[in-house]
Design a protein around this nucleic acid. Structure first.
Lengths: 132, 132
DNA sequence: CTGAATCCGCTATGATACTG
DNA sequence: CAGTATCATAGCGGATTCAG
């Protein structure tokens, strides 16, 4: 994911859309496959545990889940709480900042569900038109 | 990018959020780095040519640009028009369907610009808290 | 239970050269 | 100009193993 925002006609020597633009990094991250799913899951429910997420996300490896959670935590989007019980329990939930992202994310996913048929249709036509 | 939409508590055996769900494919694509930039560029201007895009996107390789454009075209989001002049001219522009995506995309990118400082700040604190 | 660490194949991406 | 073809490479992401 990356910024779609305003880019001036006069492209600056330091292009804000390639490297070095922070907002690009963020969107690349939250736009990644698992990050969206994790955010979505934590958005719908209040707090989830590691294994709980792992199961409900269906198919994510421990490595990727950990990696995704760490990055989101670092970005201040989710909160990680450790309960030193036995066995240990760790819960993840959206931070206030993370909450503000729910809207934009929802807009995009709703678009996908609303227009998916048109896209599938377009693909079909494109393929027919092409592969012969 | 992936669907953040409604997932039921009772995860079905065929998990709509992993593989096989069309809307996931779409979001993964339009959420990709270059796709967002291309859509943004074509959204702000009416129509752009290949080289024009290549320059304004700053740093994209010909291969990636072609690939991105092809996929977006296949998904029915952009229109590709060839003018058989000499030298040849090809223009790309958003389709009506592509236009409907501008809003959601804008919401996300605006979020990133509005909250980028909080994120950067969170990262800084996380790093300080961690690396020692 | 939660996750860190490691190995590793595969794909995505980029640089380059070539074509219509 | 607008690509295609080829090759090289980094890093994603998965499987497995180990640890607190």
């Amino acid at each position: 994911m990356a910024t779609v925002g305003e880019v001036s006609e006069s492209t600056p020597s330091w292009d804000p859309y390639t490297r070095g633009c922070p907002s690009r990094d963020v969107l690349d991250q939250i736009g990644s496959k698992w990050a969206v799913l994790v955010m979505g899951e934590l958005g719908r429910h209040g707090a989830r545990r590691f294994t709980q997420l792992r199961q409900q996300l269906g198919g994510i490896s421990e490595k990727m889940l950990t990696q995704t959670l760490r990055t989101l935590e670092r970005d201040g989007l989710i909160l990680r709480t450790v309960y030193p019980e036995a066995p240990i329990r760790v819960e993840y939930e959206l931070t206030p900042l993370g909450q503000t992202l729910r809207g934009p994310l929802k807009a995009l996913t709703e678009w996908s569900t609303q227009h998916i048929e048109e896209v599938v249709d377009a693909r079909k036509k494109y393929d027919e038109r092409t592969e012969k």
